[in-house]
């Protein structure tokens, strides 16, 4: 039976480390406050959900190029400002570790543990040539109607 529960939805468009962290902090926080949280990953945001290892799937030349140029998973993302070819991201991760701040990878695991629904936008997957095999387990796959239906029932709705 469908439970009447507060819902929160989020579109994660950005694949920047800092914005991804903000998304997952809000998502895990909302889940801890008893909300049913749905995160929709679209365009660059899909890179957050990529497996770290290379997955051998048949692709067109263009799709292969795209896959090579984009970061594979949470450890490879850059930051939205002062990235300086990855150096800024490394510095950010270093200082966060020193200050005992939870990593993006841990946040993702925590979100899954708290039953945050993570949805990969299938149209973006087509555009960027990303297949299900290349993404982490436990995802849902859907499009704009599914997002809008969830957003309609939500009190909190963000685009990051």
């Amino acid at each position: 039976m469908e439970q009447t529960q507060d819902k929160s939805t989020m579109v994660v468009f950005s694949g920047d480390l800092d914005k991804a962290m903000a998304s997952f902090i809000i998502a895990t926080g909302a889940a801890a406050m008893g909300k049913q949280v749905t995160m929709f990953f679209t365009f660059w945001g899909l890179n957050i959900l990529r497996k770290e290892e290379y997955v051998n799937v048949k692709k067109t030349f263009m799709d292969k190029m795209f896959a090579k140029m984009m970061p594979r998973g949470p450890e490879k993302l850059g930051i939205s400002k002062m990235n300086y070819g990855g150096l800024g991201g490394k510095m950010m991760k270093y200082t966060m570790k020193k200050k005992n701040i939870v990593t993006l990878k841990e946040l993702i695991e925590m979100a899954q543990d708290l039953d945050v629904k993570m949805v990969a936008c299938t149209m973006s997957m087509d555009v960027m040539g990303i297949t299900k095999e290349e993404l982490i387990d436990g995802l849902d796959y859907a499009g704009v109607a599914s997002y809008l239906a969830d957003a309609d029932e939500s009190k909190i709705n963000l685009f990051i």
Partner: peptide
């Protein structure tokens, strides 16, 4: 621990 760990 820092945000959001205490509430989680």
């Amino acid at each position: 621990l820092s945000c959001p760990m205490p509430i989680v």
